[in-house]
């Protein structure tokens, strides 16, 4: 009974933590961009204000059932994937729902949010949404392949499909996986650039080209849900990468330091890059990341 209570409280705490950290990272993203452009930039808590305001807006758009379900799918997918990522290496808190096949499950689950979004955006009937969804799915085909190849390489190399197993491997050997299979790390990091869809891979929500794409018909509370889901999902991706490649984190401070360092890769890469076109983005993923993915599998096999 007590363990269930701790589990539920831990799950709630995880969601809260992911939300807060993700929101602050979003603010840091905007701040970093502003500082690099020699601006003052918004305060680091600006995203909280935005989300609060969006939740307090009235929403009176109706395009059909799926339009209302789309943001719900997105937020559900984010929280579900969050539940399967071990946030800290030890302690019962934040361990949530890990099981022995969770890496495979996560690779599947991380796509679910985008698919839900695509359904919701398709219902709105806005042509920009349709173009945005097509772009998003094409880009997903691009980055999922190197990402899955990196994951498969790690699974074959260490004979485990669980994230906790990966952490255990790293704790036993004493080296992070980003050093024991650097090719998998390279492929996964380059795929992560696409997962975050910051510049230069922001082809899905390009405001100047497709008027923010799938979310162009979503305003008010729905946009707030998208932002919430987005920040939780950003935290999920970062925590997953920290767990797999950087040895996990033993406490929250280490977690924040490691995730922030990892987060700066897509942010800084994006600040100095202009936006790719769709086919450029896909060819990007199918060149070097794919090559590193192959090398990683060969490296793991022999």
């Amino acid at each position: 009974m007590n363990t269930i209570l701790i589990q539920i409280l831990g799950a709630l705490a995880t969601i809260l933590l992911a939300f807060i950290v993700g929101m602050f990272y979003g603010g840091a993203h905007r701040k970093v961009i502003a500082r690099i452009q020699n601006r003052v930039g918004p305060p680091i808590y600006q995203n909280f204000i935005d989300v609060l305001k969006l939740y307090s807006k009235e929403t009176s758009i109706n395009h059909g059932v799926m339009q209302h379900m789309g943001p719900v799918f997105a937020i559900t997918a984010s929280i579900t994937s969050l539940m399967f990522v071990p946030i800290l290496t030890d302690g019962n808190w934040f361990s949530n729902l890990n099981f022995s096949g969770d890496l495979v499950f996560l690779v599947y689950m991380m796509v679910f949010g985008s698919l839900g979004m695509a359904l919701g955006a398709g219902q709105t009937g806005n042509p920009n949404s349709a173009i945005g969804v097509t772009r998003g799915l094409s880009q997903m085909v691009g980055y999922e392949i190197p990402f899955v190849m990196a994951m498969v390489a790690l699974m074959t190399q260490f004979h485990t499909t669980s994230i906790t197993g990966m952490i255990a491997v790293q704790q036993q050997s004493g080296t992070w996986l980003m050093f024991s299979n650097p090719f998998a790390f390279m492929a996964a990091i380059m795929a992560m650039l696409g997962m975050f869809s910051y510049a230069p891979f922001d082809i899905v929500t390009a405001p100047a080209e497709v008027s923010s794409g799938p979310i162009s018909e979503f305003g008010g509370k729905y946009l707030g849900m998208m932002m919430t889901s987005g920040s939780i999902f950003a935290f999920v991706k970062l925590a997953l990468f920290v767990d797999i490649f950087m040895g996990g984190a033993s406490n929250l401070v280490v977690l924040v330091i490691k995730t922030f360092a990892l987060y700066m890769i897509p942010v800084l890469y994006g600040v100095i890059s202009p936006r790719y076109r769709t086919e450029q983005a896909i060819t990007y993923f199918w060149k070097w990341p794919l090559f590193f993915g192959f090398i990683a599998i060969l490296y793991a096999a022999f």
Binding site: R30, R39, P42, P207, S212, E217, F218, G219
Partner: peptide, 14 residues
Amino acid sequence: ERLGVRGAATPRQA
């Protein structure tokens, strides 16, 4: 943007 003013792409978000 330091004052919280930010561009919106569509009227639904604005």
